[in-house]
Computed example of a mutant assay.
Amino acid sequence: MRYVTLTDVFVHPIAQKYLKRSGVAHAIATAYHAYRLALKHGVNVDLATKAALLHDIGHYEWYSNGKWDYEQYKQNDIHAIKGAERAHKLLIRLGEHPQNAKEIALAILLHTDSYLPECELKRKPLQAIIKLADEADEEPGGRHHYRKIDDALALKKVKQLDELVGKQLEQERLDEII
């Protein structure tokens, strides 16, 4: 059962604020990668696409002398921690099932190793998919955060992905019955 759609999440003012900061085009592309990877690996497509859409909403803008400072970002960023918190709060506010909100937040928390001390981390499948989906859309120097997409096209793409997710969940429900 879906409690909250991707569109519900995407159009919320809080999501819009932070998605625009971290890159709407990147968030949507990552959500599509997550959908494909979730299908391939038998992971819940609803949770995967929501986590991927929201994975970077914790970004802080690191600027020096009015310009994006990628090195400062790489050295000091903890966006996954802040993003997990923001996503959890937003999803709960929208009416997402608390367990789903927690799983999505944990996937966001663990989508990058950039803030973790060196260690070997064993990710659950959803968490691994979000990391892979993000990496699939990365560009050198963080340029993937600055690709532009028209607002109307962004909403259209989110609605299309929402439809794919809904159809997949319905198919899985029917497969369980049969």
Rank of each mutant, 00 (worst) to 15 (best):
N44G: 02
Q16C: 04
G166M: 10
R93A: 15
L116A: 06
I104S: 01
G58W: 13
E138T: 10
I129Y: 09
K131R: 15
A48Q: 02
T49S: 02
D113S: 10
G23Y: 05
L126F: 06
I108K: 00
E103I: 02
L116W: 12
E71H: 06
V4E: 01
Q72N: 11
R21C: 07
T5K: 02
H111Y: 05
L110T: 04
D162E: 15
A31K: 05
A29I: 04
E172G: 04
G142Q: 09
E139R: 12
K50T: 06
L126H: 01
I149E: 07
L39R: 15
D162A: 06
I178M: 09
D137S: 14
Q171Y: 10
D162M: 03
Y35W: 13
K74G: 05
E61H: 10
G166V: 03
I14F: 12
D8M: 03
I178S: 08
L121P: 04
I78F: 14
I177S: 07
L6E: 06
K17Y: 10
D175P: 02
L6V: 05
Y63V: 09
F10Y: 12
H33M: 12
V43P: 01
R123I: 08
K156M: 09
Y35P: 06
I108Q: 00
G42Y: 02
E172W: 10
R21Y: 07
F10T: 01
G42E: 02
C119L: 15
K157C: 07
G95H: 01
Q99A: 14
I104D: 00
R93L: 13
L132Q: 15
D162V: 03
Y35D: 11
E135D: 14
R86Y: 05
I81K: 07
A52N: 12
K148H: 12
H79V: 00
A25Q: 11
C119E: 15
D56W: 08
A27R: 04
H59Y: 13
H88P: 04
Q127W: 09
Q168T: 15
S64K: 10
S114C: 07
G23W: 04
I14C: 06
A84F: 01
Y32K: 12
L116G: 02
Q99S: 12
D151R: 09
L90W: 03
H12I: 00
L161Y: 07
E139F: 07
E139C: 03
F10I: 00
H33R: 11
P13E: 11
E120R: 09
Q75C: 04
L53E: 11
D113N: 12
D137G: 08
F10S: 01
I57Q: 04
E103W: 08
G23T: 04
N44V: 00
D69N: 08
A29D: 15
L110C: 04
R93M: 14
K50V: 03
Y18K: 05
H55M: 09
G166R: 13
Q168G: 04
Y60P: 03
Q160K: 07
A107S: 14
K122M: 14
H41Q: 15
D137N: 12
Q99M: 11
H79Y: 08
L110W: 06
K148L: 13
S22H: 14
D151N: 10
V45N: 09
S114Y: 12
L174Q: 13
K40Y: 13
Y63T: 10
V45G: 07
E170C: 02
A48M: 02
K74L: 14
W68T: 09
A128H: 13
T112R: 03
K20W: 09
G23D: 09
S22M: 10
L126T: 00
E176C: 04
A105I: 01
R21I: 11
A15C: 03
